[in-house]
């Protein structure tokens, strides 16, 4: 029933889906590489994250309807109302992020950005330092390294919240949010009656991604030239 094309409507564009799953992969790669001491891989993974985060911010301004901050960032009162409704068993559907999930997206982007930013100035005290670490004093770099380690705990916390929320929708509300994030399509029955999603053209996404990647690459080159 779910797979019948006419009952399913596209809500997530390709850039958002790729972004989402790339973040999942890059978070794992970043954690594993740091843990095992593969610092060059950690650097590349971190700068790729930076490029994707910059892209996501731009896409949140000019991207498809469901990608835009203006679409999913609601005033706190509405978030509280939504959560109360959720607890009360309301069946309110959203095409994109729901009011609570919207803030989760922003929190994740902010924390990941902070993590990447501190990583640029960090050092492992042994043989490796971030591309911009030599621009600050050793003390400052060491402090930022400690913050880099601390922020990882916040990332874990947010990821935990995210997974628990997705599990809640799946197991309690019967709303599978994972599958649409893969296929891009949601069941028509779990969408608001009136849908008005405008998809931004893909070449704009590619253009923004190129600019973001350019910025990350430039930072990496700066790092190499400081040496």
């Amino acid at each position: 029933m779910d797979r019948e094309p006419e009952t399913r409507v596209r809500v997530w564009d390709i850039p958002i889906r790729l972004f989402h799953w790339s973040i999942v992969v890059l978070l794992c790669v970043s954690w594993f590489s740091a843990e095992q001491g593969y610092m060059r891989a950690h650097l590349v993974s971190g700068l790729t994250l930076l490029a994707l985060l910059l892209f996501r911010i731009a896409w949140g301004l000019v991207g498809s309807t469901t990608a835009r901050f203006s679409n999913f960032l609601h005033p706190p009162r509405r978030v509280v109302g939504y959560l109360k409704g959720l607890a009360g068993g309301d069946k309110i559907f959203h095409a994109g992020h729901n009011p609570a999930g919207g803030w989760m997206v922003l929190a994740l982007i902010a924390v990941l950005l902070a993590q990447v930013a501190t990583g640029l100035f960090a050092n492992d005290g042994v043989r490796f330092h971030g591309p911009l670490a030599l621009l600050v004093s050793e003390d400052a770099s060491t402090r930022l390294t400690d913050i880099h380690g601390l922020i990882f705990n916040f990332i874990l916390l947010l990821v935990w919240c995210h997974i628990v929320a997705v599990g809640f929708y799946l197991l309690v509300k019967g709303d599978n949010l994972v599958w649409p994030m893969i296929t891009g399509k949601k069941h028509r029955a779990r969408l608001p009656a009136e849908l008005n999603i405008v998809f931004t053209r893909l070449y704009i996404a590619l253009l923004l991604l190129a600019v973001s990647a350019g910025i990350a690459a430039w930072i990496m080159i700066q790092g190499d030239s400081i040496l």
């Binding site: 069946k91 197991l171 309690v172 509300k173 019967g174 029955a189 779990r190 009656a193």
Partner: peptide, 25 residues
């Protein structure tokens, strides 16, 4: 809401919120 029928078939297989958060904890 228009989607009421589309999800009603799964109601029986779902967990209660309390059971879910208990498991999560």
């Amino acid at each position: 809401m228009s989607g009421g029928d589309g999800i009603s078939g799964r109601q029986s297989g779902r967990l209660s919120a309390a059971a879910y958060f208990g498991c999560v904890a």
